Simulated assay, not measured.
Amino acid sequence: MASKGGDELVKYITEKVVIYMEDPRSRRSEVPKQPWSQKWFGMLPLGLSIWRSKWNRKNKE
């Protein structure tokens, strides 16, 4: 059962790599880059919550 899901994942990744490699470099560079605020917005709350939990554990000891 797990093999089928793994096969589909490998197929999907392979398709994405082939599409990426077939695109000319000039076209790849035309894609607008994602602003850092959008990229890291999901990581900041996670990092703050981990930092806060470590801080709370130190205060309890």
Rank of each mutant, 00 (worst) to 15 (best):
S29W: 03
G5H: 05
S3R: 09
L9N: 09
S26A: 14
I13G: 14
V17L: 15
W40F: 09
E30S: 14
R25D: 13
E30W: 09
L9T: 02
E8Q: 02
R27F: 08
V17I: 10
S26L: 06
Y12G: 02
K16R: 12
V10R: 03
E22I: 07
P24L: 15
P24Q: 12
Q34P: 00
D7E: 12
E8A: 04
M21L: 13
E22T: 06
P35T: 10
I19Y: 04
M21R: 08
Y20F: 06
V31D: 01
I19S: 08
S3N: 05
P32E: 01
K4T: 10
Q38P: 00
A2R: 06
S3Y: 12
K39A: 00
G6E: 01
R28F: 02
R25T: 07
K33I: 03
R27K: 14
P24H: 13
D23R: 10
I19C: 07
I13Q: 15
K4F: 14
P32R: 03
S26H: 14
M21A: 08
Y20V: 01
I19V: 04
I13H: 09
M21V: 14
V17K: 13
T14E: 13
Q38G: 07
G6I: 00
S3W: 04
E30F: 04
R27I: 04
E15A: 08
M21Y: 12
Q38K: 10
D7P: 00
W36I: 06
K11I: 06
E30V: 01
F41C: 02
F41H: 04
T14I: 05
K33N: 02
P32A: 04
K39Q: 10
Y12W: 11
D7H: 06
Q38C: 02
A2H: 11
E30Q: 01
G6N: 00
V18I: 12
R27C: 08
Q34R: 09
K39R: 10
K33M: 02
K39E: 04
G6H: 00
D23E: 13
K16L: 11
A2I: 04
S37M: 13
V10D: 05
D23T: 05
D23W: 08
S37E: 06
I13N: 12
E15I: 10
K4R: 08
D23K: 05
